[in-house]
Design a protein around this nucleic acid. Sequence first.
DNA 1: GACAATGATTTATA
DNA 2: TATAAATCATTGTC
Length: 393
Amino acid sequence: MRCRSPEPALPSSAGHINPAGLCLYGSPAHTSVMRVNKQRAKGLSIRGSQEEDPPDPQLMRLDNMLLAEGVAGPEKAKLTQIRQIYHTELEKYEQACNEFTTHVMNLLREQSRTRPISPKEIERMVGIIHRKFSSIQMQLKQSTCEAVMILRSRFLDARRKRRNFSKQATEILNEYFYSHLSNPYPSEEAKEELAKKCSITVSQGVGSTITVSQVSNWFGNKRIRYKKNIGKFQEEANLYAAKTAVNAAHAVAAAVQNSQANSPTTPNSGFQMKDEEFQLDSAESKNTLLTNMFTGSSGSFNLPNSGDMFLSMQSLNGDSYLGAQVGANVQSQVDTLRHVISQTAGYNDALGRNTMYSPHGLHANGGWQNARTPSSVISPTEGPGSVYSDTSN
DNA sequence: GACAATGATTTATA
DNA sequence: TATAAATCATTGTC
């Protein structure tokens, strides 16, 4: 149940101060507001009114609190408005108190001509007046604090509102999801890294950050929605699978080049890759590449890695996406790659296992195998510690 | 304005 | 305690 905060009741004039005025009950802020008000009420006097020139410490504190929360724009303007009204009203009360006291003193002086008036009586009268005004001033302060607190809660409430993640952030999360399709349960570290990565990306655009719990939410939603309607996500899965493939291809190409550069005596393994073959400027071209990879029509490059990628194709369409022919094609490409990579050294363990055709991943009953087992990762495309790898699958 | 997409919340469960 | 599943509520698109 979401609560909606009402509009802050701004104390616009002395006559409008809510006499009950005090609804910050229960909250620590309320307690502290009351405590401060009590302290302030104790020392309230006409003379003390001059102490109001510096900004109210409580309001200053709330102000700082709001600023720390990132209050800006209209909220901040409203805060300034509240403070201005508060100080204006306070001044008015103090002036009225002064004037009224002077007036009563004059009256008493007048009366002293007809009857004896003791200084004690004058003091008592002034005391009564001051007490009355203090009480009104306290109400003003309480109302102001209330308005500020409402403003704050409204701001926090607004922050709870749903905001779509940036495109880049969603892409990062999707990349992870589809490259870990057999076990889309990022570890705590992976979540942290994803959150970090997303926030870095997002901060360049929207200026917000994504927390670890938001990453968890995202994966929770993604898993359930993917499982519910695999067909709907097929295109997306293809796209990200292609992306992963391209990334892997780049990494392999780099590894091969590196290997050749480091070992001038090593003959060319026959696995030549031109970088332009992997330039995919559009989703369409990625899809084309993907299609070619699975049909073998391109000839330039076929599936480099990613058992998950094949898994996604399988699981998306039941158990026979392009069937064994594709599987064999993929297998041969993987074998070629494995051979190349084994020559470049360093990733044998990572790619040494071929689980491409094992029926892992999404179960027929709708669950993921090894659910709740965080995937740990070392990948040829990203290296140790990266969140983008699923070689454990 | 209708509808789909999506982030957040709640509840139940292992 | 993490997750699944259902649901809510907002945002974006047409």
